[in-house]
Design a protein around this nucleic acid. Structure first.
Lengths: 345, 345
DNA sequence: ATGAAAGCGCTAACAC
DNA sequence: GTGTTAGCGCTTTCAT
């Protein structure tokens, strides 16, 4: 029932030439190999006529290259990562690659399974925002000269390609703004696992800003929120922090999900932002322009991250992963502080 | 430099058996083909030892099946579609498929290119939320018995697999709620292209509700917003609709992007929801729980849509697209009206 | 200016 | 129980 697909052999036969010749022509190597213009025309005509499409599987098998790259993120339905995905897809297409997108749900074994699966599928290279704590899996990839680039999160002490932002400075800038506005009891809501570099660096930036401003770092104002149970825990912790004995006057939300949870609770309690409490968040999202008040945030240059990631990866793929560990690229991009109403008294 | 990949031949050689035998064992057909337990053990041991991974390209080429499915949506960074993507990915993985996700940006030629590209890549089947106006491209797919299922949007008068919601009834229910609350001058902000079934059906539902309630349908209250320039146009149109001579008292936003634009403008103008004007939107998003006031919306059962779509597609793939046109499945799921503060006086 | 043949890694039909 | 052979569709080396 299913009509047989036209193959290169069909073209060759019906034209009375060899497969070799047809292959050369359709790969635009006709001139180089001295195939006569006339024959080339005939081949192209037949290709159109029979509606021939090369079989990518066969080509990939033969060439050992699939022209597919893989993207692994922790949650594709999170606005930050879906924007990453959209941009990566665009640049990848431009370079002739297709994209397989996978979402790990912050589940480490699942991430490992996905990495192996994509590798087994002969995917040419990987772009990964990893939840891994150590570099074991990636050591393996490097040993196999398998091309990959980490984005968003790096593994401390591990040399690999990486594209991300300066989370320390981004946070520092945001906090200094807050402090300049007169806020001096600033709580930070981090998210577990806090070992993830982006989160950890943001905590470091927070501490640094406090210290540089002569404010005390009080570890009771640092709360760790489990990533799979954000809303209830934020609520509970926030409640405590608002008691008279703590009486914080500002919150630094380490990512947009945390910020959203904070807003929800503060609304519920009729606690006014920024009069009663200021709010600043990492990751700018559209939503922050719409809330009352609008929310100050630290924006990441998503397009640039994606562009650089693809460039680095393509480079790796083209050189067949033949870079020594010392030549791996670490690209750190600047963030952008967007000041809105939530931090202005 | 790149270490040669271990192939089935390496396993066979090092064990002194045939490739066939190895192939049977690793595909769990050892018992069926009467391979001795002992030999099977030896094979598996060697597989572990050499860290052998089957080459999917070769397998796909041989089997004529890639175990990849494609998902095409108009904008992966839109929350509705990124949720669709996440869910489809989950179900697909469960069934042993990988997912290639593509985003068309509502660009019809691009959509056609992507469809052809995926088909050429021997992707086993497609799930598409299409922007096509007519069925030409899909007629071609059907002629080739190429498995696909439309989601979210169908092509009127075209018989194909489809999974979506009852947009007419969903809208109708929402509007009736609005009308029961006493709102009687309800504007609708549609989005272009309005020929897209989901949008068109929502407009129909809107009209139906007005008529059934004895309200006049006034075509001046139906505004079409270009999808690539939502905010400025919404602003402009909303401004006009709020003039004394029109003085609408409620807005039906045909999707979440429009609703967001409306909220932004109303906030800006200090126009109170729902006191000055009520707001209801199609597509529930997290954001609607966070705004002041919270926003009433028509929710789509995303998980169910994805589950059904995968089931239908898998069925098509397994039967090799051998269904006649009359057996194509059209699955229409119910929506869920979530009443929040934005429509309650 | 063109073609024959080999082989990428795998599975299935058919031996023995 | 196990092996031989053929072939999926393509590209490449080496001939002619």
């Amino acid at each position: 029932m299913k009509e047989k697909k036209i193959s290169i052999t069909d073209i060759a036969k019906s034209l009375g030439v060899s497969k070799t010749l047809v292959s050369m022509v359709i790969n635009n190597r006709g001139d180089i190999n001295g195939i006569s213009k006339k024959t080339q025309k005939r081949v192209w005509a037949k290709v159109k006529d029979l509606n021939y499409k090369p079989n990518m599987m066969a080509r990939s098998l033969r060439l050992g290259k699939s022209n597919i790259i893989g993207l692994i993120v922790s949650d594709i339905s999170n606005s930050f990562y879906s924007k990453i995905a959209r941009n990566i897809e665009r640049y990848a297409e431009f370079k002739g690659y297709n994209l397989i997108i996978c979402s790990t749900e912050e589940d480490i074994p699942r991430e490992i399974r996905l990495i192996n699966m994509l590798k087994d599928r002969q995917v040419d290279g990987l772009i990964i925002s990893s939840s891994q704590k150590d570099s074991i899996v990636f050591d393996g990839l490097i040993k196999d000269n398998y091309p990959f680039v980490l984005i968003d999160r790096y593994i401390p002490g591990f040399k690999s390609n990486y594209v991300g932002v300066d989370n320390i400075k981004g946070t520092y800038d945001g906090l200094m703004h807050l402090i300049r506005q007169g806020y001096d009891k600033i709580a930070v809501f981090a998210i577990t696992p806090t070992y993830v570099s982006s989160i950890n660096d943001r905590i470091v930036g927070y501490m640094k800003a406090l210290i540089d401003s002569g404010l005390n770092y009080n570890k009771n104002l640092l709360k760790e929120i489990p990533c799979n149970n954000i809303k209830p825990v934020v609520k509970e912790e926030l409640k405590k922090l608002l008691l008279p004995k703590n009486k914080i006057n500002a919150i630094f939300a380490i990512n947009n999900s945390i910020a959203i949870a904070c807003i929800e609770y503060l609304n519920e309690m009729h606690i006014k932002i920024p009069e009663d409490i200021a709010l600043i968040s990492f990751d700018d999202i559209d939503f922050f322009k719409l809330t009352i008040p609008t929310v100050t945030s630290v924006e990441q240059p998503i397009e640039e991250i994606c562009k650089q990631a693809i460039d680095v990866l393509e480079n790796e793929i083209d050189t067949n992963g033949n870079f020594s560990v010392n030549e791996k690229q670490k690209i750190i991009l600047p963030t952008n502080l967007i000041i809105r109403r939530s931090t202005i008294k």
